[in-house]
Simulated scan of single mutants.
Amino acid sequence: MKTTIKSILILAVGVAAASFTSKPVERVTVKKSTINWEGEKVTGSHNGTINLKEGYFEMDGDAITGGEFVIDMTSIAVTDLEGDSKGQLEGHLKSDDFFGTSSHATAKLVITKAVKQGSTYKVTGDLTIKDITKPISFDLNKAGNTLSTELTVDRTKYNVRYGSGSFFDNLGDKTIYDDFKLDIKLYI
């Protein structure tokens, strides 16, 4: 009798635990995935890379329903400059004038909804930069095990205002545009 009650309790605990487990996830291959950025100013532009720290998609069968991605902001690199100029710009982007990576080492994207339309998903989510979270929407394209998107982010919504003509007057050719672009490729 004790063995039967013990078995029933173990089974009940197992069923209860299974009912509270999260959705199946598909982990992103971090080392293969890429995030390229481009920022523009009146006199030109700069570009570079940022590393993905970790990420996954929540799945329902083969359909994406959500996900979470952590970006290593300390990895900001400039790819269009060399030498001292490269180091100076990377240092400035990591400073409190821009992303303040000593206090805000990561950024995060949480997908809250993904609606499949052919090979494209209409995605909505929350983007957090410098501990400020704002909603974002974008198209996510899927081709086999590769997912890609291009995002345009208004940096001023995340308190990144250095050189912004929206906040400072008389910047002239020193004006840096508010939007920056991200070209993202994720591999699962």
Rank of each mutant, 00 (worst) to 15 (best):
E82K: 15
E26T: 13
D139N: 07
T29P: 00
S45H: 15
M59A: 05
A77N: 13
T74G: 03
S95E: 13
G118P: 04
T124S: 11
K113F: 09
I132S: 03
K53R: 02
S95Y: 11
I35Y: 05
A77H: 02
P24T: 11
N51M: 10
N47M: 06
S103I: 13
E54G: 06
S95A: 11
E82Q: 14
S95H: 10
K53H: 04
L93Y: 08
T43E: 09
G91S: 14
K32F: 02
Y56R: 03
S45P: 05
I35S: 02
D60Y: 10
H46K: 03
P135V: 02
D139S: 11
T43A: 14
S119N: 15
K108R: 15
G87R: 11
D60R: 05
K108N: 15
R27F: 10
F57I: 09
L89A: 08
H104S: 08
E54Q: 05
K122M: 02
D96T: 15
M73T: 07
V123Y: 01
P135Q: 00
D62W: 01
L52M: 02
T112D: 13
G125W: 05
K94L: 04
K130C: 00
G44R: 07
T106Q: 12
T133L: 07
K53A: 00
V30Y: 04
I132N: 05
D60H: 05
P135W: 04
A63G: 02
V28Q: 03
T128H: 07
T128C: 08
T49K: 04
T65V: 14
E58Y: 01
N36T: 11
K31C: 03
K113A: 14
K86H: 05
P135C: 03
S102K: 15
D84R: 05
S33D: 03
G87N: 13
K108M: 15
T65K: 07
Y121Q: 08
S45F: 15
M59F: 08
G118I: 01
G66W: 06
D84E: 15
K130A: 06
G67K: 01
A105I: 12
V30M: 02
T106N: 14
I111G: 03
H46N: 02
K108P: 09
K116M: 09
S102Y: 11
L93T: 12
K41V: 11
A114C: 07
T43G: 04
K41S: 05
F98R: 07
E58H: 02
F57N: 09
S95G: 13
G87A: 14
G83K: 10
Y121D: 09
T112Q: 10
I71A: 15
L89I: 09
L93H: 03
N36L: 14
V25K: 13
L81F: 07
G67N: 06
S75V: 13
K32I: 01
D126C: 00
K116H: 11
K41I: 07
T106M: 06
G39V: 08
S45W: 14
T34M: 12
L109T: 10
G55D: 01
Q117S: 15
A107I: 14
Y121G: 10
T34R: 12
V28K: 03
H92Y: 13
E54I: 01
L52R: 06
I35G: 03
V70P: 02
D84W: 00
